[in-house]
Design a protein around this nucleic acid. Structure first.
Lengths: 198, 198
DNA sequence: TGTTATAAAACGACCGGTTGGTATGTATAA
DNA sequence: TTATACATACCAACCGGTCGTTTTATAACA
């Protein structure tokens, strides 16, 4: 019995993730989710206490998926700068290009939509970006210790800028679906990181 | 007589622009606009045939404001690369930092919210970004003719990447209001453009 | 300068439809 | 028998938009 419940709960999350990505959070109605899951109100609200509660579950799922996609083939490389390049390429080419999140990037879309609407949810998102910035920072420090970088670089600044570029690419790719944008961003970020080297 | 009508129409646009920036298009109800303008339904719908019609008027206003802010002190510099730097600094420090659009950047917010919702409106926005890309491209070509740039640079790629960076900064600044993000983006974009020089 | 005609401008009740959410009932599997 | 899982009917609030009516500003005329 319990298995059935978990299964439907998971299905709700999966379908809601798709809808949130394509239509946005507010513009996805509970009825949209019900239609996608072949459920009714009572069935859904047995699993989630509110739409916002569902969103947090969807966020966790999205984070799990993103991590899987973006950290693929990263431990293999000892060079921290190469790890950064791979992460960037995975984020743009795989996350965006392969439409892991249909209709764009879940995190970026939610960040923009929820900023100014829900402090709780948007700061939840910001926390995730801060974690990523911390990771990039750590990798840059490793690169410095290996003597790969120019002097006097500000690592947190660089880390933030990379994240900003990734978000910008998501913003412009979503409406156009123009894959050259992805190639160009990867190419320019590659150039940018090369310039950090000694 | 006509003067009164034009005045209220302008006031509606101004207040709607603020609301769209802070709350987004769909999450701003007609009632929100009515409250801000001290009007009633009939009064507003005498000036605009629909909410979407109002949006297009707001877009024009936003573009006018943006141009005013971002092209300030640009004709003065003969160096095209300097013009690009000034445009970037104006866009980030003035448009975002001085909260010209309260709550973020109108164009970026709308692009994300409307992408996947309204093809007409989001492609209207994309057209604007394409125009800007064209301008940046032209300036880069000028810089090349002056012999300022490295060989074999792809100008459209660079132009798109700058626009992407500006949008990314808008995405991350809006929820955090952390001005260091602005400084960092300007600083890194400055570094990036320096690397394009011979 | 005061009066009146006229059209612009604003009002506000109302529409059908949708929103997120709840309370209650029922089928089913352990 | 009992808890789980889902269905159904319903709620008040809100959505964008319409429409007949009333107010108001101005131009023409006396």
């Amino acid at each position: 019995m319990a298995a059935k419940g978990i299964q439907t709960r998971q299905n709700i999350i999966t379908k809601a993730l798709q809808l949130f990505c394509v239509k946005g959070y507010y513009h996805t109605s509970i009825n949209d989710v019900l239609e996608a899951t072949d459920l009714t109100k009572g069935g859904l609200y047995g699993h989630f206490s509110s739409k916002e509660d569902l969103w947090y579950a969807v966020y966790d799922q999205a984070l799990r998926i993103w991590r899987e996609v973006v950290f693929r083939g990263i431990q293999s490389s000892a060079d921290p700068l190469e790890r950064i390049q791979t992460l960037i390429e995975n984020d743009i080419k795989k996350k965006l290009g392969d439409h892991i999140f249909e209709g764009g990037c879940f995190f970026h879309s939610m960040l923009v939509e929820l900023s100014g609407q829900s402090v709780a949810m948007s700061s939840h998102l910001m926390q995730g970006f801060k974690q990523l910035a911390g990771l990039l920072c750590a990798w840059l420090e490793q690169a410095e210790q290996q003597g790969l970088l120019k002097e006097n670089l500000k690592f947190d600044e660089i880390a933030n800028y990379i994240i900003i570029s990734l978000n910008g690419a998501a913003a412009l790719y979503a409406p156009s679906r123009d894959t050259t944008i992805l190639d160009q961003t990867v190419s320019q970020l590659h150039f940018y990181i090369q310039q950090l080297k000694k």
